[in-house]
Amino acid sequence: METITTLLSQQHHDCDKLFAQAEESVATTQWECASVDFDRFRAAMEQHFIREEQILFPQVENHMGHTEGPTAVMRMEHQQMRQIFTEMAACIAHLDQEQYLGLAETLLILMQQHNAKEEQILYPMSDNLLNHQLPSLLEQLHQLGNNKA
């Protein structure tokens, strides 16, 4: 059965693959591919962030009655990742391989520990908390993806 956990975790894995592809292209200095791959990775991440920030987090915050707490931290980490995306994009523009790979390493760990917190704590908690409205919520999460695609 599809849940918030399965749907959004799958997106993490999809993004991981795009990340690795972009990194590979930069490592082999195929800058044209790198630019395309990186844009795809960044777009997929952004779409995932938007699904969380605009659909999932507000529902969780509604239930908790405040916007402090886990979702605030997740939003902050999204901002941190977005900042690295900007720096990585600049590296591709300037063909700066060394800096890109260093940033990629940093992003990977930041992203993975962020994903782990979501997959192990936030998503299961959301599945629990939003149990009664799960079907409509999942539909919204799917729809946002389709509109953007």
Binding site: M64, G69, P70, A72, V73, K117, I121, M125, N128
Partner: peptide, 10 residues
């Protein structure tokens, strides 16, 4: 799980 105590900023 007590979500009021759950903060991921730790």
């Amino acid at each position: 799980m007590n979500i009021t105590q759950l903060t991921l900023e730790q």
